[in-house]
Design a protein around this nucleic acid. Structure first.
Lengths: 137, 137
DNA sequence: TATAGCACTATACTTTAGTATAGTGTATAG
DNA sequence: CTATACACTATACTAAAGTATAGTGCTATA
């Protein structure tokens, strides 16, 4: 009995914590769009702002700072006139790829699963209890 | 030029959307703790509430509903007296394992990376620009 | 001289996520 | 007869995430 509780606790600390850390970095409305934009090459602030449709300067500024603090984005300042600032993905950011891929694949698979269930419910005449997410852009 | 824009758009819809879907299901303060708790076997409402330390009834109720709608949790009602309700992970939920694992591994790796940088900065005498996350339970 | 671009920051606001507290109806235990 | 367990729901709140709008100091262009 006591051991089970310890097992649970260990599952908490050993699984939950690092997963939380990863999720914190990926979650939020703008982090992924920014990463994807920068995956096409280094960009200036306003270029990113134009590509990541709908983001405000405030959010972009904040998110870039966060990404930089986490070592995923590098901020380069060329002190020409006027000052030119570019942002680029770091090598470390590339390690996120398999993670994003795994999330992508699961997302696709999951949607299929929900749609299947949807069809089953329909043909069985039961009430549909499946939440179909609103499409994002 | 036009093609690049289309490529970007395609990256948006083909990567971003399913990743968002996955993240939406995993993110939030309580979903993972609940999943982990149920991974130890089916449980009743109050049992989960006790194990997932700090959660309120309202949140537990809401999150269980969400998880059920997404086919990750099955709600079983045994109409004995009094009514006994249990919650269990579905087979579909097991498909999340590699995803969670990938998030976990990246989280661990990422933290190491940050700590390394921290050491580098310290020994180089530069200002530390690394956000070290507060430990979760 | 006026206007626009750049890389932001400041202030105030709204929306969403999560919390606190109390209450429901039924049933068994003391 | 009172109290507590169970599986919740209702109402009202706070905190965190995100939005809207404006402004900064500098330079280049019309």
């Amino acid at each position: 009995m006591k051991k089970t509780i310890e097992e649970k606790h260990s599952a908490c600390t050993s699984i939950l914590k690092p997963v939380r850390d990863s999720l914190d970095i990926l979650s939020g409305k703008w982090k992924l769009p920014i990463i994807i934009a920068l995956d096409f090459g280094e960009k200036r602030f306003t270029e990113i702002a134009q590509e990541v449709h709908g983001i405000t300067d405030r959010m972009l500024s904040k998110e870039l700072r966060d990404l930089e603090l986490n070592g995923l984005v590098k901020r380069n300042v060329q002190d020409s006139y006027p000052v030119k600032v570019t942002y680029a993905l770091t090598g470390h950011s590339k390690t996120l790829r398999p993670v994003i891929n795994s999330l992508k694949n699961w997302g696709i698979m999951h949607k299929k699963k929900l749609q299947e269930e949807c069809r089953e419910y329909k043909s069985s005449g039961k009430k549909i209890a499946v939440k179909v997410k609103a499409d994002s852009i």
